[in-house]
Design a protein around this nucleic acid. Structure first.
Lengths: 118, 118
DNA sequence: GCTTGACCTGGAGCGCGCTCCAACTTCTAC
DNA sequence: GTAGAAGTTGGAGCGCGCTCCAGGTCAAGC
């Protein structure tokens, strides 16, 4: 909510129509756009670039190529990010395995320790 | 570099030994740890949690389980993040396809437009 | 009529993760 | 020996993306 107003302020979304009481009333189209925006945000696209994309929208099909360009770059970035995360994932797997080995070793020693303190 | 000093200040890495001139000289072990830290950062783990993890390291094997716990949670988070990114990826694919269709449609119309202005 | 609660406004504040600064020392090359 | 690069320090500053605040307006329920 605060975020929507923030997006509106920075020109990321068009001011929606208001109801009789002056409240914002988002159309289906607005909501679709907001949904796409949050998708872009999730991919880590900086707000600034999203603003650029939003600005281009006003020019209709004549800006289609520029907008596609932005999305293509973002897609590449996302793919790289996924690859990066998968690398990290295998590092995590390795570390976790290590800890499990440590735990098993400790489990082997514990009964002895218990005897010693018995 | 500034980042390493920052990490040192907040206790994420141990102060490394210094050379004769007072400069930091990171051991292989230091570097390994730093490497793992940047892996964790890449996964989006907040610094605060990394500090907690670093703190636990001091207790040796007795903290193995807690540390494993942290890594397990992070692994889950990373997997979810990857899934999320893949969702976004297909949205991007869809949008990009759309733009390509728009371009093709424009390409079909352009020759006519050229004739019109000729 | 009156409370309550959700929304409105402009603007300030915040948490994160660095990143830069000025002033200083130290090593390196010429 | 001297200039310049590359480190050192504590501390301030910054960009991002919200998020909260005080004070006001409006609509609905009792």
């Amino acid at each position: 909510m605060d975020t929507l107003r923030y997006y509106e302020r920075i020109g990321l979304i068009e001011p929606p129509v208001r109801d009789s009481g002056g409240r914002r009333s988002y159309s289906e189209e607005d909501l679709g756009w907001v949904g796409f925006l949050s998708c872009l945000r999730m991919t880590g696209m900086p707000i600034r670039l999203m603003c650029e994309y939003a600005r281009l929208r006003h020019f209709g099909t004549s800006s289609a190529t520029s907008r596609k360009e932005i999305l293509l770059e973002q897609r590449t970035a996302v793919r790289e990010r996924i690859a990066e995360l998968q690398m990290c994932l295998s590092t995590l797997d390795y570390k976790i395995d290590n800890y499990e080995m440590v735990e098993r070793r400790v489990a082997e020693l514990t009964p002895l320790a218990q005897e010693a303190t018995a």
